[in-house]
């Protein structure tokens, strides 16, 4: 049974100094459910980080409330929250002379005694966290020698060792190469299933979020937060509205965004299978609209298993690769 872990009600977020208040977002209503991977999407400057900071009680709400396990966040003491919420932040720790194992061990701080010594149970949980994240080979390495992706995994292991039911991550995939992004997202998804954690993260990696997240929080300036599964948000037009800019089109059929180029001419394509799909993609990319072969008078690309045959009014050409075909078409 899925239950609500974090809930925000009519929340206003922003910064208050003694002179003035700067409100970043208001009237926000949403909830995070246990055992799910929830992604927070929003343009730069819309207040994703501020919302995360408010959820983790790093800063107080301007109005409304944040409830964690059905209790207002302000009623928890810092030490209690340390056992409920684990975080992975964008700030890069400048740590020297600290091993991966020691850093993961810091996650045990809310449970260790006065001097911070680790007991047998702590060591077991540290091992478990390291194994789950798959960084056993890094455990003796110094943190400052790690790559960004490795470091991100170590911070996730730290949050796991903290044994909190909820983990919040601020742009964990930023600054990573694409395979590492996918790896981190898959790791997080696995943790929700296998380690029974509730995971909430902000990200700019739309495609990945739409393919992996259980739920999406779409954050927009005036509209506040829209919540739903990626598919529901695709169908009701929220995603399209969200990215309604020139040159980007939301493809409802596959539920992903596509970069559109204005096409200047069209070409008929005959054939089938992967080779046909790729040919069409390449043609679109170069501003040519591929259409099915019909009676119209236009060039035709015939795709066979061995080659790409270009039939034009002036004759036919045989191309071995798509690259050759594109050159001929120029």
């Amino acid at each position: 049974m899925k239950r609500t872990t974090i809930e925000i009600r009519d929340l206003s977020i922003g910064y208050r100094t003694h002179r003035k208040t700067r409100q970043v977002g208001s009237g926000l209503d949403a909830s995070i459910r246990s055992g799910e991977l929830t992604c927070l999407l929003g343009a730069n400057g819309v207040g994703k980080s501020t919302l995360l900071r408010t959820l983790t009680a790093f800063q107080p709400p301007l109005a409304g409330e944040v409830r964690i396990f059905d209790r207002p966040v302000g009623q928890y003491r810092t030490a209690e929250l340390a056992r409920l919420l684990g975080v992975v932040l964008t700030e890069k720790c400048d740590l020297h002379n600290m091993t991966v194992e020691e850093l993961v061990g810091m996650g045990r701080s809310p449970y260790t005694g006065f001097w911070g010594g680790l007991g047998r149970e702590d060591l077991r949980l540290i091992d478990e966290a390291i194994d789950r994240v798959g960084i056993a080979s890094l455990r003796g390495r110094m943190v400052h020698t790690l790559s960004d992706g490795e470091r991100q995994k170590v911070m996730i292991a730290k949050a796991l060792a903290q044994q909190t039911p909820v983990i919040l991550l601020d742009e964990p995939t930023a600054f990573l190469d694409y395979p590492s992004k996918v790896e981190i997202m898959q790791l997080l998804l696995r943790l929700t299933r296998e380690a029974d954690r509730t995971i909430f993260l902000s990200t700019h990696d739309l495609e990945l979020a739409l393919q992996i997240a259980d739920r999406i929080w779409l954050m927009e300036g005036e509209r506040g937060v829209t919540v739903g599964t990626p598919e529901d948000l695709s169908l009701d037009g929220s995603m399209e509205r969200f990215f309604s800019r020139r040159g980007i089109r939301f493809d409802r059929r596959i539920g992903l965004f596509r970069v559109v180029r204005p096409s200047v001419r069209s070409i008929a394509v005959a054939g089938s299978g992967e080779r046909r799909e790729m040919t069409c993609k390449a043609l679109r990319r170069t501003g040519i609209d591929p259409v099915a072969a019909d009676g119209e008078k236009r060039p035709l690309v015939e795709i066979t298993d061995e080659a790409y045959l270009l039939h034009e009014a002036c004759g036919s050409t045989r191309c071995a690769t798509i690259g050759e075909l594109l050159e001929k078409l120029e």
Partner: peptide, 13 residues
Amino acid sequence: LLGDGYARNLGLN
């Protein structure tokens, strides 16, 4: 050592 954010999240005032 971990910085303010992480330190607070680990229960430090």
